[in-house]
Nucleic acid binder design. Structure first.
Lengths: 216, 216, 216, 216
DNA sequence: AATGAATGAGCATTCATTCAT
DNA sequence: TATGAATGAATGCTCATTCAT
């Protein structure tokens, strides 16, 4: 499309993005029609196609914006922190925070993964997130703070545990984001073992090093 | 529906379920039409509606069967193991194994969570899975093997980390299920900390106890 | 598409072709909607798409059928005639006859030429018609009956004059096909010159031989 | 509309007419949108509707201009020629010339005939052209140069042959206009017969006199 | 049990036209 | 004069579902 937009135009476009996101999240992408969207906003159907080439394009834009915004938030949260472990903790907390404030986008991201044409976007975003975390994990390993294991695998494990806890505790369970963040941090750092068990285990197991393709 | 089926009828129905599952996984639920399914099997449209009331009913059946099968597998894997930590490890391994052998169903489950009418089924299944794990976590806590924390939260964290690692490593990364299982077990038990860091941490932090609604 | 059709199916399909041809001719291709067609026949919209992939496909089928039918008619008319000039005369008459009995198709063919995506079909059909006439023109030249000139050009001139007279005299003027056929034959054979003028001209002009690409 | 236009306004309007003609010819009337036109010119939509009431009005204007221009050309070509046969020859040549220099308009005229709302304009234009030729044909007959036959029919035959040859040879075949003009003249005057055949035929056939409605 | 045919509401998208600025 | 924005009826097409055989 690439239309030169006036200020009013930019507002309209954002209005469409916001409302569509909300409807898609509440109703599903396929089960929300363009008609639903424009009717809900009380505008004519042409408005939609003045600002977007297609329903799919708007959806892609939604995904891209969401991923971009989440990433921006994480970076900000980490910015001034020198300690690798603390950086990871703050990254986890920022994720949970963001998911809490953008619940509908969370659902959208999940749906997107289930359809072949959108899935690559999600995978790319996730790889980006993991790549962002990688240096900190590596620094942690170098500093002897983090177990010597494939940093990619560790990052993904953190991502999976954090996202799931955020959904279950915050979105479905109604708990505050901070509680979920603490739980996620605690689990990601120390797993489930008790002090005694961990000590025994760490003494005996020399770490296994699971690989993910692009490991260093 | 509830039709009394002959042996041949049962086979036909299963054929429809299997083929539909494959198409849905490859193509998406909404983007796969009933016509696609019956044409792919070389049968008439009537066949579909002889065995299922609707496309949605078939999909629900697919979800139920998948959840039931996964649960059966996990139970079997655990059956004779007395040690709580080992039970958890074997449950994790069984999950990864099953996801590896039923990749398409995994995609289906993910899609289902994104649509309001199917999401409750997924949540129920997940709660079931967590409930199944609960006694072992509690036993682990009682035995001093597992950190004193909300067992529901711990179970969910395990679920999230395991599922995500299975997807990324096995489905997307092409690694053997066993590798992913080992990584998941390792992460879930001990988190990411190194021996030294864990020791220091466990010495100082008296566990935080995050709550999830139905905790004991 | 390529659907195996029952007898009933074949009849339905033909019914659609016939009615659509009539509507297109009366109303224009673009100005006749699929809805117009199915409503006119009192059937549901699905019927149209059961038998044709698209509105465009039906139209192409219409064009192909028309060209095929016209050609069949011309061949039949010529079949047993040994004399080249008579063959040409009978071909002209057959064309006029056919256009008279298939007025609506005539309009369709004309429209088709005006749209880039259909024009090649028309050109191909015309080339076919001219190629069909070519041997007779050549035979006439060889026998000294027809002026030595590019046979392709002569054939096209015959086609142009005949079609136009058929439209103007028969379709628009309401004259019988036979009258138009006689006029076309007369003009195509002898032009407009009177006996005296022709004699003088033919005595003096040694024929110019205009070329069209594939001349022999 | 009938707007009083400044010089600049007249230029704008002509620009719209020219560009629209080109797009319609290349793309079809229905398949070219007003948006295509104004976007192609880099102006806003309002411009179009400032100068024309509707897309259809612009198209009618295009047709009228084309017919007017063609007629002007033919008249000029004939102006000073006293001999009737030469007048006809020069009229034919002028037509071919014009069609060569206005290829896109040719396509437009053809399309117009295929749609009921425009067809009358085309028929009127053709009748005008034939009426213009009529006096010369009649003069030719009176002078014994042209066969005694319905002059309207002869004129239409000339028109049909000429237009078709112009299209096939010049527009599609890439030959120079002069070649097509010579061929058309040759065919229209003498038909396809050789000297001998023509002599024999003209000796025996006392001309048939085919009628077209408004003949004298 | 199974088929080919039919239904018709619904969908994404287009586009001639109008309007406020 | 000109623009960007908006309108909304209409279009081609899809698809879950039903029906007659």
């Amino acid at each position: 499309m690439q239309r030169r937009l006036t200020e009013r135009g930019r507002r309209r476009q954002q209005q469409l993005l916001d409302y569509a996101a909300e409807r898609f999240a509440a109703n599903g992408y396929h089960t929300t029609s363009v008609t639903d969207i424009v009717d809900g906003l009380g505008v004519g159907k042409g408005v939609f196609y003045w600002y977007f080439d297609s329903k799919e394009e708007l959806f892609r834009r939604l995904l891209a914006d969401a991923q971009h915004d989440l990433r921006r938030n994480q970076r900000q949260a980490i910015a001034d922190e020198p300690d690798p472990l603390r950086r990871i903790q703050q990254g986890i907390a920022a994720s949970v925070q963001w998911l809490d404030s953008n619940r509908h986008l969370f659902t959208l991201l999940e749906f997107a993964r289930s359809e072949e044409r959108f899935a690559p976007l999600i995978r790319a975003g996730e790889e980006q997130a993991v790549a962002d975390a990688l240096p900190h994990v590596k620094a942690g390993i170098a500093a002897g703070l983090i177990r010597r294991d494939d940093p990619l695998v560790l990052s993904h494990a953190i991502l999976g545990a954090t996202n799931h806890l955020a959904r279950v505790m915050v979105l479905e369970g109604g708990e505050p984001a901070s509680t979920a963040a603490t739980a996620a941090v605690s689990f990601c750092l120390g797993g489930i073992l008790s002090a005694g068990a961990a000590a025994r285990r760490l003494a005996s197991e020399p770490s296994s090093r699971h690989r993910l393709s692009s490991t260093s």
